[in-house]
Nucleic acid binder design. Structure first.
Lengths: 240, 240
DNA sequence: CGCCACCTTGAGTTTACTCAAGTTTTGTGG
DNA sequence: CCACAAAACTTGAGTAAACTCAAGGTGGCG
């Protein structure tokens, strides 16, 4: 199942270690504390909730990937966040969700009633950690949308799918001579990637083709890209 | 003092009422709970902390305006958030700040030691509220950066300086025949606005000139714009 | 095997950018 | 209070990056 792998990958500069940390003070702890913790499964492309829906529940992603997006009245869409394993969604300051949540892959969730979350200190602390993580990711994505070129955006996106690389704590290639290589699963269509990166589908496609021509990547399936030279892609992200 | 007014203005769709709410469950409550709550003043253009500094303190803005920004190695800058009265800054997931914080105006802050914040449940709840507010603002700004035209960006920015207008809960003009008018203080240079909106200084200047020519605004001082037709500007934000 | 959704590529256009003057505003010292 | 300098802003001309529109290609699934 390809999504099992995708679920371990984090956007931006968050690595597997961070997620492990999140989990360790997370579900196992607070799940026991709550009266009942329901599980919920949804299929790829199903909507979990719509912008404007009454916000009664929080969710933690156990496996799979969810995107949060907002629409403008004329149909323009912006994907504002990608929620991966260990991360949460459904936060709301008012009584309503501010984004629509749609599954990119088949997804398993833990459902948390907002009332219960408020009552549990452990839960509050866990929510806090997720909010801080999301804030940092959003800040980084703001830089991407405000200041990066199409090539830099797509390269940054690809690097975000490589654990332990591309962020500020980038480790560089493991060893001299070791192949600096990895296959990443996008779990998004070109249109969804475009709406995430603030580009058009054609521009995303052209940049991917360009990276292919340069020999930096191979497109194995539409959904699956082999990065032949991770450092090479990293050099294109604008952060070096 | 022009900044006293600016301090009451909120970015995005947050109105004075929201801020009043934040404050009411905020400073007065937790300030009493903490051992000592220090105040700190900084002047316009002073840096409160740099990206990468050890994150030992949180701050709440009592008066004034602070911008958070990130730099790319080649000097490109993106302002990722504008912190106004009642809002907080200095959150960090790791031990380091992820953005630089620089004062746009003379600013008064409450200083909160990170350790103390962790110990106080009231403080945690207050932080949570601020994080949720900031998340919503960031989501909205993500749409602006990813999907809006220059005209829409500048119009959205101007509307964000008009309390109770321009957001989802926009009230529309108060009464038929009442002048739909307001003077807003930018408290940012054209360059800072450009770096916030993901544009160049020239583009910001051209859009402002265009709005002036159309009779929708008057530029009273560089820093102060009279909006002659609030609804007219609101129509240009892309949210209608 | 053929259809449908998704993706790619090309040609032409548009928006915002860059570069280069000029102009206005602001702040300072005489 | 005025003159001057520095900073900030505006405007124009030309360019480039990404967009739109339009075919055509590819691959996954019944």
């Amino acid at each position: 199942m390809e999504h099992a792998q995708a679920a371990y990958q984090r956007s931006e500069d968050v690595c597997i270690n961070d997620l492990a940390k999140l989990r360790s003070v997370g579900r196992e702890t607070w799940e026991a504390g709550l009266g009942q913790s329901r599980r919920h499964r949804i299929n790829a492309h199903e909507v979990l909730f719509y912008e404007g829906d009454t916000a009664e529940r929080l969710y933690e992603v156990v496996s799979g990937v969810i995107m949060l997006y907002k629409l403008l009245p004329d149909g323009r869409r912006q994907v504002v966040y990608i929620v991966r394993e260990g991360d949460m969604l459904g936060f709301s300051r008012h009584s309503e969700y501010d984004c629509t949540a749609e599954a990119l892959t088949d997804t398993e969730l833990v459902v948390i009633e907002a009332r219960e979350a408020e009552a549990s200190a452990q839960m509050q602390s866990h929510i806090n950690k997720c909010l801080l993580l999301q804030m940092e990711n959003l800040h980084e994505h703001t830089v991407l949308l405000g200041r990066k070129s199409a090539l830099e955006r797509v390269s940054t996106f690809l690097m975000s799918l490589v654990p332990n690389r591309g962020g500020n704590g980038c480790e560089g290639p493991a060893e001299e001579g070791r192949p600096d290589t990895r296959t990443v699963v996008l779990s998004m269509t070109r249109q969804e990637i475009a709406d995430y990166l603030g580009l058009t589908i054609e521009t995303v496609s052209r940049v991917v083709s360009q990276l292919k021509k340069r020999g930096l990547i191979k497109v194995e399936k539409q959904d699956s890209i082999h990065i032949a030279n991770i450092c090479g892609i990293c050099q294109l992200t604008g952060i070096h």
